[in-house]
Design a binder for these strands. Sequence first.
DNA 1: GTTAAGATCTGCT
DNA 2: GCAGATCTTAACG
Length: 188
Amino acid sequence: MLGNLLIRQIRGELLVGKIVETEAYLASDDAAAHNAAGRTKRNHILFGEPGRSYVYQLRHHHLLNVVTEGEYRPSCVLLRAAEPMRGVEYMRLLRGPHISADTQLMSGPGKLCKAMEIDLALYGIDLTSATSPLTIAQGEGRDFQIEVTTRIGITKAVDKPLRFLIKDNAFVSHPKVRRPRNISTANL
DNA sequence: GTTAAGATCTGCT
DNA sequence: GCAGATCTTAACG
């Protein structure tokens, strides 16, 4: 997925971003995955064909995943960051006036969705079809190294090496470390 | 530079 | 009720 292009067509605008950071969520043995507790109204698309979008809402934001395996194996890849390649001005409009650097337009899963106006209206669409309003197309060469780390922002299965990013790319996310919650002395 | 709070949808206890 | 695959703003050192 890294290096491929995320292409959004909206109101006559063409927005393109190169995918620079992803996370994998596995079909089994992954407590952090949404399918860990089974099939729900929210996640049912994971259980169908690969290549569809799995969009869901977290607090005030939307997050975009690509369904990967199909065949009743509910796995997906979360798109966490992208490098703007085309339509930067429109992305700035969608993101708001507070963004100073292009590196921050899509440097996080919620930001990426906002910069491309991706929300639940795009749930379940076919990302492999060129006629979809949101498409993933093959990028150019693989002239980069891939860095692997643990995943960001989760509280379960925190040690799995399932975050992937293009090494030395300036457009990846820079998440603040989530502070550990104080544990009551009664639990020590 | 860091930290805390707030916005507010879905699904589990 | 509450926690969660988040992000921004405001307050502080």
